[in-house]
Design a protein around this nucleic acid. Structure first.
Lengths: 185, 185
DNA sequence: AAGACATATATCAGATTGATATAGGGACAT
DNA sequence: ATGTCCCTATATCAATCTGATATATGTCTT
């Protein structure tokens, strides 16, 4: 999925800055997709040139300038067309998460070359880390500032997607706890 | 994880060509990591220069030349050191699969902008596709040629990792079947 | 006999990351 | 008080990676 499409999809839920778009991709909807500023900012510039979004510069008293982007009607049409056209190809990529680079799974696969005490430590850390991620995804408390993230999180689509991720993560934790002995006993 | 490390890890299980390394990353151990030829071939050249691997060119009668790479003792030491040094950072990246780019999850998240019939079709296709991936991972039949892939697949580490992926995929299928109505009814 | 597919290596434009730079504010410790 | 660290906020860039394409030949199917 193009960076431009992701940005438009997030802006569909309300105006946002590049910084906020990045934070949406790291908050409770985390574990799905990530983008660096190095691709978000150029994408927003391109979208502005093509009139799919408009910008308003907010010169803030004591903070750096904010550039708040808003999706245009043209942008909404373009977004909906693109999503429909490309939907087929997003289905066949990855099992539950595309473009897979699971360094952790590779580490497990290569763990024969690691001392057993280290394997134990690694699994302990991993289970803790994954549990934290689960908490992030299932967090239902207030989110403050960006209505954008709230809208995405509380929509039926957001609930479904978060539920899917949460179930998958729980399964992973249970599996690791039950079967870890096979790797280090 | 560096491409060089991945290559060394696969070569630890026996000599292989670049083509075979690519196929290992696409076979029954699929869904964990992937690399393009554009990064595998340069990595193998670099490893050769640094004497972590040796090459033997097999001029084949009627096929293009094969370059069979074998890991050296220096390569094994380097691999084990790297794995140990970097293991900590591989733990904290992604929930079950790092560097996440789940185009499918993004599509679900944005599916409010899609006609309901399309959402139904997408979920049908997705469930079918994911089921195929599950079959690939759980496949226990013969693999022919490359002992390399066999060795990885049948090791305790391979069994653990494949089991983890399989459980996670089954959970995803069940979840989608049970909850899909929330997206299109 | 044409077309699809598998083996096998290689290159490259375009896209992405991760680090770094810049800049001010607030929180907390020493 | 002064240092350190984190948050908001935009931006750039070298190094890396992908996806497409090129080249070459064999086999299997229709």
């Amino acid at each position: 999925m193009q960076t431009e499409t992701i940005c438009l999809g997030i802006l569909r839920n309300g105006p946002a800055t590049g910084y906020v778009i990045k934070s949406v991709l790291e908050g409770p909807l985390n574990q799905i997709y990530n983008l660096s500023f190095g691709s978000i900012y150029p994408a927003l510039s391109k979208l502005t040139k093509e009139k799919y979004v408009t910008v308003k510069q907010h010169a803030q008293d004591k903070k750096p300038d904010k550039k708040v982007y808003t999706i245009t009607k043209k942008g909404i049409s373009y977004f909906e067309e693109t999503l429909l056209e490309e939907s087929g190809k997003y289905v066949r990529s990855g099992n539950y998460g595309d473009q897979i680079k699971s360094e952790f799974a590779m580490l497990l696969l290569f763990s024969k070359s690691l001392p057993k005490e280290n394997i134990k430590l690694i699994l302990d850390e991993r289970i803790l880390y994954v549990q934290q991620q689960l908490n992030l995804i299932t967090y239902e408390g207030p989110l403050a500032k960006d209505s954008n993230l709230n809208a995405i999180r509380n929509s039926a689509q957001g609930q479904f997607t978060r539920g899917l991720m949460a179930e998958v993560i729980k399964t992973a934790i249970n599996y690791m706890e039950k079967n870890r002995k096979k790797l280090h006993d």
